[in-house]
Nucleic acid binder design. Sequence first.
DNA 1: AGTTTCGGCGCC
DNA 2: AAAGGGCGCCGAAACT
Length: 564
Amino acid sequence: MSGRWALAAAEDGGVDVAPLGPDGLPAGPVRRESDLAGAVRSRPEVTRWVWRSTADVYPRLLATGVRVERCYDVEDAETLLLGHEGRHGEPRSAAAALARLRGGPVPPDPPQRQADTGAQPPLFEPAGHRLPLTDLLAVYAEQQRRHERTAHPDRMRLLTATESAGMLVAAEMNRSGLPWSAEVHRALLHDLLGERYAGGGEPRRLAELAEEVSAAFGRRVRPDLPADVVRAFAGAGVKVRSTRRWELAAVDHPAVRPLLEYKKLYRIWVAHGWSWLQNWVRDGRFRPEFLAGGTVTGRWVTNGGGALQIPKVIRRAVVADPGWRLVVADADQMEPRVLAAVSRDPGLMEVAGRESDLYQSVSDRAFSGDRSQAKLAVLGAVYGQTSGDGLKNLAALRRRFPVAVAYVDEAARAGEEGRLVRTWLGRTCPPAAGPVEDAGEEAGIPVGDDTGDQADGPGWGPGHASGDSRARGRFARNFVVQGSAADWALLLLAGLRRACADLEAELVFFQHDEVIVHCPADEAAAVVEAIREASLLAGRLTFGETPVRFPFTTAVVECYADAK
DNA sequence: AGTTTCGGCGCC
DNA sequence: AAAGGGCGCCGAAACT
């Protein structure tokens, strides 16, 4: 008997397992086993494990060297199904799902698990999370039925399956870590920042730049304090509203150059300096915690170490093991290609059907030759740009690719009106997503008038198209593209993971549209080919048959910094 | 003293 | 040239 089995913690510390039939219903008696890893290891014929939570179960399996082919994560599916049903806020635990099914009081979700830096609790599925296997299966069966009630059941099934695959990948990457040379990193820091001084103060180079800034102003100024910098410029007769880089860059003053240099290096120092190295790198690996599906759009997030924001200059420290390579693969112009696939705009699909530079092609067709303007216009359409250069070319874009622009416009309208918006596979954006009613809303006030924009009181109460609803429109506009891109990227990851299972190669990094595989040098060519095949398959599985292609720029390197 | 928000910037 | 989407991180500032 192959196929699906289900698994749940038993109250005695053991584990219950049961085979499932093709209909998802139990196809045999529940068996009690004493040990989780043994129960899984002894059933290599199982192709999909149904369990409550991958984050609880899978790290324990990996710790004993057991991997699984596929899984179905009931609580993750519950989250996606609730969202699709427009019930985002409801508790998402399996216990809550069971209570809704049985009509009992729905328990609130237990507090979020801490990032597991320490030892794991002795039992998986601690009290409060655990659900007996028969109850878990009742929830699972109901979820199957709920899939059928969605707008596109086949896509929704694909979505929950691929999110579950993403959870497996994340757990495996958390275990493997990203190869990291502390030695290279230290040398890099020394080159950039100079010596560290005792007492934890600024390193030499930062101290020197701070001196230069102060000298330029003729008084002591701390460049890391925005308020101090704004005051200093005011004292020098220069009005700046903030100390953002682009605003300072336009100012003609001798303090600007050292100030901008300071800010760049300061950033390295505080975010990726010596203490970062101390905290996050051990035994030649950087180990952040990847969280699959950590955002509403489906993009991943990481806990710790800013793993998705590694500055380019620091990537010099990502170095393959001796005799191994890093295969770095980056999807080319992912967003417009995804827009082509979801909107089915004939012109944009044709352009996206070529592997050559899409922005250049758009530029050739819609404008007259300027690639950077085409890129700005496309991204502006996706992000909901409201001014600037991108807007000027939006009209041309609209003429040449009317269906594509209408697609994101409609999403924006839906968002403004509080309607649900979905990705291609059915991940659903909460109706009030985006900036709700928090402060920092004066973004709608034009530059040049800094009078009391908070002295409004009854001025603009609830109602009409506020900056708030426009912000939700931009959020929804972006959601359908960014989220559908995340759908596709998950399929890609799942396919690549499967190919790597036959090799020594491991997935070690994933950042929205970029993956890194660490592999023996003689496997690199096979990995490159696997990426190509996974991309083809992911495009077809996610979006159906379209002419759209998703080419990758792939590099086989020993050091991440050499990839671009 | 401890906790939350802000400003700025890193990545996509 | 510079109002766009998603995040995390850090120290300072602003709170309780």
